[in-house]
Simulated scan of single mutants.
Amino acid sequence: MVSSVSGGSQPLLQVLHGHPQSRPPIWFMRQAGRYLKEYRDVRARHPGFIEFCLTPEDAAEVTLQPIRRFGMDAAILFADILLIPHAMGQNVRFVKGEGPKLEPVVSADLMKTLSADKAAERLSPVYETVRLVRAGLDDDKTLIGFAGSPWTVATYMINGQGTKDPSAARQLFYREPQMVRDLMAMLVSATADYLIAQAEAGADALKLFDSWAAGLPENVFRELCLEANMEIARRVREKTDVPILYFPKGAGALYEAVAIEGSFEGLAMDTQMPMEWAKKTLSPHVALQGGLDPLLVVEGGKAMREAVEYLVKTFDGVPYILNLGHGFVPETPPEHVAEVVKIVRGD
């Protein structure tokens, strides 16, 4: 079994094992990305985004770039949540200026073109990226592997593209519940295998991103989000005991059920989370992460500094990781990122 032991010298793993730090460890969602010139230079070598993600040397390079520049406590694997549907046989492509485009899975016939069998094996370049990154990190830095949660990935697969309105997937669930459940089962299986392989390659922690958890009725959220991710966690823990973070973005009051029932070591908070409530209600059950509005880091200045200091002060004494409530946007000034790190470190 792959083991993370108790976190060793890595502050972030210490937090995920329930041990508060004198200053919270820090990393950022989308810390490897277009706001960095060095990332854009590497990205320009590849005409296709999936090809980029599946080129281990370059994927490892961009994963390590923000660690070299800013010295965060963790690197997160550079990949994409849509690599799983790609590996399952769905046609996935990225169009410049428009984002991902997929052949929508809206019928049982289209379901037959997909398979979870050996999907994780087809993503072997990702595991080589993990090995390269782990070899390039200092021992006190954590490497986080990740995947999209089944409902979020299913939403893209059904909608056929990124969208601000994910209701088509929910409507399909109401209309064809067994078909969607079958798709979810495939995704649970492929995702668990994918995360296990990342841990075996050297990931110290794992994160599940449920970007479309918002807006679901409680019973639907429990089935499609909470229970699906708990099943992934159960399968992963049969092979490894590395800690697992879950990010049910927009889940609101249902965060409490996730914290109490979810069996995850870490729970990532979005920007709308009431922080005092989270400390009182959630932190007794799970390590917390996040909450900083990425748009504040775009603007910088007094408001950004006060927000960072508020988070550090609010979560003093409980297991907490400083992070964003969503990922960096491309227009983020790198100097503002450096300032956030400096504030958190108390420099």
Results as ranks from 00 to 15, higher is better:
10 Q>R: 15
12 L>M: 11
15 V>T: 14
19 H>V: 15
22 S>L: 09
27 W>G: 00
31 Q>M: 03
35 Y>L: 04
38 E>C: 07
39 Y>V: 00
41 D>N: 12
46 H>F: 15
52 F>R: 04
64 L>H: 04
70 F>R: 12
73 D>W: 07
75 A>R: 06
75 A>C: 07
82 L>R: 14
85 P>S: 10
86 H>M: 05
86 H>G: 03
89 G>P: 15
100 P>F: 14
107 S>D: 13
118 K>R: 15
120 A>H: 02
121 E>F: 06
123 L>S: 07
124 S>Y: 12
137 L>F: 05
139 D>R: 12
140 D>G: 00
147 A>L: 08
147 A>M: 08
165 D>F: 00
165 D>H: 03
174 Y>V: 00
174 Y>E: 04
175 R>C: 02
178 Q>C: 05
181 R>L: 08
182 D>W: 01
185 A>P: 02
187 L>G: 11
187 L>E: 08
197 A>M: 10
201 A>R: 08
203 A>E: 11
204 D>E: 13
208 L>Q: 11
209 F>D: 13
215 G>W: 07
216 L>P: 04
220 V>R: 00
223 E>L: 07
223 E>A: 05
229 N>I: 01
239 K>Q: 12
240 T>S: 15
242 V>G: 00
252 G>P: 11
255 Y>W: 09
258 V>D: 14
260 I>E: 12
262 G>F: 07
267 L>C: 12
268 A>C: 05
272 Q>I: 01
275 M>Q: 10
277 W>I: 04
277 W>E: 09
277 W>R: 13
286 V>M: 13
289 Q>M: 06
291 G>W: 03
293 D>K: 14
296 L>C: 14
296 L>R: 12
297 V>S: 10
299 E>M: 14
299 E>L: 12
300 G>Y: 09
304 M>S: 03
315 F>R: 02
318 V>K: 04
320 Y>Q: 06
320 Y>L: 06
333 P>H: 13
335 E>F: 13
335 E>L: 10
